[in-house]
Design a protein around this nucleic acid. Structure first.
Lengths: 232, 232
DNA sequence: TGACAATGACTGACCGGTCAGTCATGTAAA
DNA sequence: TTTACATGACTGACCGGTCAGTCATTGTCA
């Protein structure tokens, strides 16, 4: 091969180990003294660095030396926070998914039209997932899932099944209210979600060949399900 | 982690180096003598073994020792057929995609209704991709694509762009004939294909949690696009 | 046809680089 | 000082890639 995979120590090393040991606690927010606090800071740095590396290289190809360097930490420090590479990976994914899971609990969808509710979901999704690093996590799960059944299980339980259940409820409501014509859609909420997933995958694989306007695509898709919108 | 990834030397070792050197050419078809023919046979064995391993483990985690063992061949033999691991991977994917690409050329879709044409596509897809090892290849591309731009490019050029173009043409025809109400669909043929892709991914990640009837899902999706079918 | 030589597919022990994980040593907070 | 945290040199297993040697097959000549 010639111009393939990104090189090891690239990307922003985040903090090249700035603010060395003996720094003053400083004014208020940033440095933060107290052992526990500092430790938590480091742990966070490690998590972010590791996620970055895992996304860029996948599990096996990621070197903990690189993670350490990017986090501005010695390799040994990683092992103060995680048992080993594998459990670090699993814990990482779990952590990264928590906010997503939070979202799935929040709005018991009533009030306006079902379409508005779904549109809200879609907008949130694009903002929070498709255009964030979180989208890459989804791709990472697709990539490593088969080798990490524990991850796949967790993802299914916490995200997929909940998400689909929510969508199914929404669809049934839409059918009941006459907003959705196709009754059978409730049997396959996946159809409702599919384009969103595609958008994420497209983003990381083909966006440089042919950029995809996810927002527009999702709008067209909703028009397909709910019928054309009256007002443009 | 505990019960994860499959073990190295599993699966059928194909031929544990059976039919040793001095065997007779046998009756007619199977063994096949002649140096070139034997070599081709081995190459094929290597390709199949490698594909299997790559699918199960991903690029980096795959050991060429295992590929060799599975193919019933010495490791050195691999290097008689491929320059190195990377080019082997690329060549493999390309090879595996050829039949798929062939499909995309074949039927310039006319004759019956557009829906029938699309349904044909869907059926073919389920038979040839979703339920075959070929589906795993798609997942493999999603997984390794970012690290192998050459693969992603190839896949986009040879499969994605052609496939989408074909779908777009079909959609436009459908719109012109009044089979498809939603005119904007032609702008995003991805929507038409999305559930199929989801089915493939679902298959390899979640099928053991919740099996998915891909055929039914695709039917519902087509009903959504073309309107409910008259006769059941 | 039989004997011998040339060929090159195939082998697998080996080498060298890489990287997950360890631990003796250093440092600063308590 | 004591204690808990942090470091990074180090170890050893692992794996991609090599290559000298083997031997069935093919070609050649008598």
């Amino acid at each position: 091969m010639s111009g393939s995979s990104p090189k090891p120590g690239e990307g922003v090393p985040s903090k090249p180990a700035s603010r060395r040991r003996g720094a003053v606690p400083a004014a208020s927010s940033e440095p933060l003294s107290g052992r526990a606090a500092r430790a938590a800071e480091r742990r966070q740095a490690i998590i972010e660095a590791a996620l970055e590396e895992f996304i860029a290289r996948g599990f096996t190809a990621t070197r903990l030396d690189d993670v350490a360097k990017r986090a501005g930490v010695a390799k040994g420090t990683i092992y103060l926070h995680f048992k080993d590479k594998e459990s670090m990976f699993e814990e990482l994914i779990r952590t990264a998914l928590v906010p997503l899971i939070g979202r799935l609990h929040t709005p018991p969808p009533i009030g306006g039209s079902v379409r508005d509710a779904v549109e809200g979901f879609a907008r949130t999704f694009i903002q929070e997932v498709a255009s964030t690093r979180r989208g890459d996590i989804v791709r990472l799960i697709v990539a490593e899932g088969p080798r990490f059944p524990a991850i796949a299980d967790f993802y299914y339980r916490e995200v997929v099944s909940r998400g689909l259940a929510a969508m199914r409820a929404l669809i049934e409501l839409g059918v009941a209210r006459g907003e959705i014509a196709q009754k059978e859609l409730a049997r396959f909420p996946q159809i409702l979600v599919a384009p969103a997933l595609i958008a994420v995958i497209w983003q990381s694989l083909f966006s440089r060949h042919a950029p995809l306007d996810a927002t527009e695509m999702l709008r067209v898709h909703l028009d397909l399900i709910f019928g054309e919108r009256r007002t443009s």
